[in-house]
């Protein structure tokens, strides 16, 4: 397994009139963190493109606080990856995301094989 940590500040534009982070913005944070994973793997001109997403909302996030997105590449096979993400703010777990993604060429969107094979341990 390979882990990556991505930090961001929760901003006003992340929230809705309920006073908390709008639920769909966790997907935006997930995408930001996945882009960081691609950089961390020193891959260029590719993106991790989710096909399936499960997100469980645990605690509400509020503007002004820090959010940490911990991404774990659990398994890769060919161009496919099984990924887990945990979003925390301080002591609170805001959300947990499980997703299946395909590594794709940024311009052609064709599948690209992962440079290393990871297996779930």
């Amino acid at each position: 397994m390979t882990e990556f940590r991505y930090m961001r500040k929760i901003r006003l534009h992340d929230t809705d009139c309920g006073g908390i982070v709008y639920h769909a913005n966790y997907i935006v944070w997930s995408e930001e963190a996945l882009a960081d994973v691609v950089s961390g793997l020193a891959l260029e001109n590719v993106l991790l493109d989710p096909d399936e997403i499960r997100i469980e909302y645990m605690r509400p996030g509020t503007a002004g606080r820090d959010a940490e997105i911990l991404t774990t590449l659990e398994e890769t096979s060919g161009s496919c990856a099984v990924i887990r993400q945990i979003i925390r703010s301080g002591e609170d777990t805001l959300a947990e995301i499980s997703l299946k993604a395909v590594l794709r060429s940024y311009t052609e969107l064709s599948p690209v094989e992962f440079p290393v094979k990871l297996t779930h341990s």
Binding site: H23, D51, I53, R54
Partner: peptide
Amino acid sequence: ILTVIKAIDCRK
């Protein structure tokens, strides 16, 4: 009363 989302499963 507020309606809150607890979980989403989605597939493209």
